[in-house]
Design a protein around this nucleic acid. Sequence first.
DNA 1: CCACTTTGGGTCAAGGTGACTTTTAGCTAA
DNA 2: TTAGCTAAAAGTCACCTTGACCCAAAGTGG
Lengths: 237, 237
Amino acid sequence: MANVAVTVDLVIFTVRGGALHVLLIERGKEPFLGQAALPGGFVRDETLDEAAQRELFEETGVDGRELHLEQLRAYGDQRRDPRGRVVTVAYLALGADLPLPVAGTDAARAQWTPVADVLSGLVRPAFDHGAILRDGLERARSQLEHTTVAAAFCREPFTVGDLRGIYEAVWGLPLDPSNFRRKVTRAEGFLEATGERRFPEVGRPAALYRRGPAVMLMPPLLRSAAALGENRLSGVG
Amino acid sequence: MANVAVTVDLVIFTVRGGALHVLLIERGKEPFLGQAALPGGFVRDETLDEAAQRELFEETGVDGRELHLEQLRAYGDQRRDPRGRVVTVAYLALGADLPLPVAGTDAARAQWTPVADVLSGLVRPAFDHGAILRDGLERARSQLEHTTVAAAFCREPFTVGDLRGIYEAVWGLPLDPSNFRRKVTRAEGFLEATGERRFPEVGRPAALYRRGPAVMLMPPLLRSAAALGENRLSGVG
DNA sequence: CCACTTTGGGTCAAGGTGACTTTTAGCTAA
DNA sequence: TTAGCTAAAAGTCACCTTGACCCAAAGTGG
């Protein structure tokens, strides 16, 4: 078995204005010229993780050590790429309100796209990138239940309300503010109070927090049973 | 980027005599000649899932549709194979007390190995297969919490005690029989009573069950917080 | 008949969750 | 100054799950 190309593709999520967005580029060559696609590229003489970090930096200018980056899974159907056999290893990246894609290389054609636009079919990614994106979304939703990665979406310092906004955007569900606060503040090592407060334009000032040392969330913060079946990602912005 | 070989490797778990076992083959050629390794092989003109099913059949004679088979993740460090760049996609298979590996092809050198022997360092798999095995074990342990795959380890019909034995072998923990029964019998769609009973050599007869239609376990059946840190897989046989 | 083992059913306290109410702390408009 | 608004923060309460027990039931073997 030779002539197999290996690429990495990145599902980069961020929350902007209360809605979950994914970074998509406009393809500059065939196949699927002009169509939206996940950023990615061929693996060089480097580990898969290094390839993902490199592509992330090239597309967004973000140092991979500053945000959450994990492998999703591999996709390797024979006909997923019309040019030949291409196996891709997908990565999931979660970042705090990331900057607009930097100029240079392919990034000029990159832009943040509401995930809802992809789920609704308004945007149709090339290749099997739509399916990869959906798998990444489900992984992200699951990670929020069991780990503290949600804090990786927030620029420090942040409030409990900011954090709740992340959960609501990713899960596509409204959450009870009071119960959410009780949960995350009691989870040991999730949040560290800075002692400062933020004064919003309207409403009571909110205490500010930093990310704590905890990685796992025990007990987990589970979506309600009803939420698992649904897939609504609307009316959240 | 050319000259990349893509393989699939299988982490096939089964429970025999109360202990978790993994299928390992003895390598018949360099590198790592004579050393233990996960079964696997090169991907042909087929999907990754098909390649995994084919390898599974070749090694065990088991039809992949009869047991649980899911992709674990990809491993692609440059130096994981001394022969050159080989990216492997690992799969996790969980099966009911599988038969001894069938004769033929490579399978003659395959045998069920206690997972404890690998964790303790008694058996040292070739390549990075030790790390892949550990990742597969953690995935299996996690799957038992959230899904009903444990029933895939059991030959039908089975008792609640059989099922508990699976959990204890995979998690490496003793479980309270009474609480375990309450949990799994109340989980809707997990078990379907056949109405029959099994008469063991010792002890009270046990009701027999079939697998139910449910796939997800809601609410999940979580390992105790204490168990997450530990890694003991001993005193289980 | 007794010892033994495992199933299967039950109790009970502790803790987590969802739904809900109340209070607090800032703002702005009258 | 006060009323009205918003959101944060705290508290209440019923319900459920869980873990740690206990105990009867139903077989086997001495």
